[in-house]
Design a protein around this nucleic acid. Structure first.
Length: 266
DNA sequence: ATGGTGGATGCTCCA
């Protein structure tokens, strides 16, 4: 028995409905975490997910037309929470507990705008504060036996091999030293294990996002690994597989992010 | 140095 978890920034869940059945066929996830659903809770395509076998849902809609996160599950979920961060109810976090006690999180970190100076760019300041506040919260909840999975668009590519050019992206929001440091603090806050890099060595390039602005995303291959699955130490020995579903970037109509999966021994 | 695309909304913001 295994438990497969999938995270995907869908960039509008309604537009991605035609891709859901083929994705489920390809990845067979038990739990799906979505970000950037861009839909009010009343408009969420719950029936589509139910038909595919995901009859359990936890939603946190975003501001009108933006943000929004969700968890869809084959298994019952309980204890659903929808934290707000930085005093903004903008639908960036939802979490719930599976029947075996694993707590799964779907998190959408602010992208941070263009300018990489927090004094000049309030969006970047918000991103850094968001990461720091989430880190403080997880540190306060830390218990040695916690079995947590944190999935989502963390909007930071931490390793040199997580971007197409470390040197050229040092001042580009998503790979600046300030963000990488903030993400590292979040990772330390609960001793999170990067479940994808657990299987893919740090000297191998790995991306989960390719800009819409490239004429040919596959040919230029200027990607970044912004989407992550982390687990707490009690789940380490249950890690069985991880995958970044790069092909999905070519499925039309495409999101600019691809799904990432991690499989645990159950 | 610049502009490039896409999504939701409604004549612009966000990523």
């Amino acid at each position: 028995m295994t438990l497969t978890l999938l995270t995907w920034n869908v960039n509008s869940v309604r537009l991605r409905v035609p891709l859901l059945a083929p994705l489920v066929d390809a990845a067979r996830p038990d739990v799906i975490a979505l970000q950037e659903t861009k839909v009010a809770d009343g408009g969420f395509p719950l029936a589509t997910f139910a038909e595919l076998g995901y009859g359990h849902a936890a939603l946190n809609q975003g501001a009108r037309g933006h943000g929004g996160v969700a968890i869809l599950s084959r298994l019952p979920i309980a204890h659903v929470e929808r934290p707000t961060w930085c005093d903004r109810a903008d639908g960036r976090h939802v979490y719930a507990t599976l029947p075996d006690g694993i707590e799964v999180h779907s998190l959408y970190v602010p992208s941070g705008g263009e300018e990489s100076d927090p004094a000049a760019n309030p969006r970047f300041a918000h991103k850094l504060r968001f990461l720091a506040d989430v880190a403080t919260w997880f540190a306060a909840r830390k218990r040695p036996r916690n079995r947590f999975v944190l999935m989502g668009d963390l909007n930071v590519a931490p390793l040199e091999s997580d971007v197409w050019s470390h040197r050229q992206l040092l001042k580009v929001v998503s790979h600046t030293p300030a963000e990488v440091k903030a993400l590292a603090s979040l990772q330390r806050a609960h001793d999170w294990i990067d479940a994808v890099r657990y299987f893919v060595p740090a000297d191998e390039w790995l991306y989960s996002w390719w800009s819409y602005r490239a004429a040919d995303w596959a040919a230029s291959d200027k990607g970044r690994r912004l989407d992550h699955v982390w687990v707490t130490p009690p789940l380490r020995r249950r890690l069985r597989a991880a995958a970044v579903l790069k092909d999905v970037r070519g499925w039309e109509p495409a999101s600019d992010h691809v799904p990432v999966t991690v499989t645990l021994d159950a």
